[in-house]
């Protein structure tokens, strides 16, 4: 199972903060994005979101494995 987390505008558009995906073998970030877009909507802006895997920023090329938590991080605006 891969846990996919959404925040801010992405969560609002998706209508949810979290989506689970049962995978048989490792997937790419692009495939996770595709799964999301098939299941919760187009999510404009997700292409520009950063990716975090298991609470650390990761490259878009990283391999996503069973048990990973993938978060899409829209441009941050804290402070």
């Amino acid at each position: 199972m891969v846990q996919i987390l959404l925040f801010a505008s992405l969560a609002q558009q998706a209508g949810t903060q979290s989506v689970s995906w049962k995978i048989e073998s490792p997937v790419t970030v692009g495939q996770v994005r595709g799964y999301l877009q098939d299941h919760v909507g187009e999510l404009p802006g997700i292409e520009n979101a950063l990716v975090a895997v298991n609470e650390e920023y990761a490259d878009q090329e990283v391999e996503i494995k069973n048990g990973d938590t993938v978060a899409f991080i829209p441009p941050v605006s804290g402070g």
Partner: peptide, 8 residues
């Protein structure tokens, strides 16, 4: 904080 911390 404004660059790297995931707060919105």
């Amino acid at each position: 904080i404004k660059e790297i911390v995931p707060i919105w």
